[in-house]
Computed example of a mutant assay.
Amino acid sequence: MRSILFSLLVFTAAGLQAADKLKVLIVDGQNNHKWDITTPVLKHALESSDAFTVEVSTTPPKGAPKEAWQAWKPVFSEYAAVVSNYNGEPWPQAVRDAFTKYVADGGGFVSVHAANNSFPDWKEYNDMIGVGGWGGRNEKSGPWLYVKDGKLFRDTSAGNGGAHGPQHEFIVEIQSPDHPITRGLPKRWLHAKDELYSKLRGPAENVEVLSTAVSDLTAVNEPNNMVLAYHKGRVFHTTLGHADYSMLDRGFYTLLQRGTEWVATGNVERTAAVPADFPTETTVSVVKLEGYPKQEAPKPKKK
């Protein structure tokens, strides 16, 4: 009897612990990046914090028949946050409407890297992410958002949205040290080899820039981590994370964990501790994940 009671107590405690975790959905399935390789890293980044349980919803592949898309109906309202690792064909209107309602009603949304290339013609989505790149974006999409001399600029001059130079390590500089997502992190830290997005354009409303990096193309501080309000919902937008070797950066792990908790709850408590191995201004810190990185980072070109 005692062993049965003990087993019941252990089972109940485990169930309560799982129920206490925030439920997160990652959406993938199409991307100009290797989503099948990077989604497992995103999943590990979140679950390794012990703050989240993560499920994945994979869209039909590019060119799939209409029937396949009609069958893809994620129930966003079942999750505290939705993380997008998607850049591809437009979602069905019913799914777009459901997602817009989800965020507007208070759902949390995290846009990762090329997710900001998606849906250039979906107004509500562009309002959520603030700025995006490529997909025909230009001055008509909205201003180019950047930081110069400590001030946020919305440049309305003509030009295409979205650019980056060769992948390289770069310094991430915190611009909003008092925000819960960045609180306590070093002012400047070296990020692993990645694409440094620049010249992003969009509505750029209700946005707070958390961190930036000086672009090799524009010589100004380009936003790489932002938060936005969309009606009752919260959005965390990171431009970092081109490949698995970029996402395995401990700084990326920390910001993804904190950003996801913040969009889900409005606070950062479960993921607030600053890891002992957080990168410094001179040293990259890479998370050890068995079998990763699967992708090979490009080597610098000889001059």
Rank of each mutant, 00 (worst) to 15 (best):
R201E: 05
V75F: 00
N117C: 15
N126K: 12
A163D: 10
A219Y: 08
P143T: 01
S84A: 06
S49L: 02
A81I: 01
P90Y: 11
V286S: 10
K302C: 08
T39L: 05
Y102I: 09
H113L: 15
L152W: 00
A98N: 12
P203L: 06
K193M: 14
K101R: 14
I181G: 04
H191I: 07
G259R: 06
K101N: 13
V82R: 01
W134F: 13
A276Q: 15
K187A: 12
T53I: 12
I181P: 06
S141C: 00
T53K: 15
R270A: 15
L22Y: 03
S84G: 03
A264Q: 12
D20N: 09
K21Y: 05
H179S: 12
K303Y: 12
P74Q: 00
R96V: 01
V103N: 07
E261D: 11
T283R: 15
A104D: 14
E139V: 02
G133M: 07
G136M: 09
G15L: 03
P279K: 12
I181W: 07
D20T: 03
Q175S: 05
K123R: 14
E139Y: 03
K101H: 14
V207E: 10
K303P: 15
R96T: 05
V214F: 02
W189T: 05
G259K: 04
K148N: 02
R2M: 00
Q295Y: 04
D244Y: 08
D36I: 06
S176K: 13
S198F: 10
M226A: 06
G165T: 03
D20Y: 06
S215M: 08
T238A: 09
H237F: 07
V24L: 04
M1A: 08
S211E: 04
V209Y: 07
H113G: 15
H113N: 15
K73M: 02
V27R: 01
S7F: 10
D105I: 12
T100S: 11
D28F: 01
T254N: 11
V263Y: 13
K303T: 13
E261L: 09
E55W: 02
T212E: 05
P92H: 05
P61W: 04
P186M: 08
P65Y: 05
S215E: 04
T238N: 09
A13T: 08
K148E: 08
L210K: 13
S198N: 08
F252L: 11
Y125V: 10
W122T: 14
S141R: 00
D28G: 14
P300G: 10
Y197M: 06
K73A: 09
R188Y: 10
T156N: 08
V227C: 05
S111P: 14
E222D: 00
D277W: 12
T254D: 10
N31V: 02
R270V: 11
L46A: 03
D249K: 06
S118A: 15
S246M: 11
S77C: 00
E296H: 13
G241S: 07
K73S: 09
K193T: 13
D194G: 04
K232Y: 06
A204S: 07
M247A: 05
V274K: 14
P92Y: 08
R137Q: 04
N126Y: 07
L9V: 09
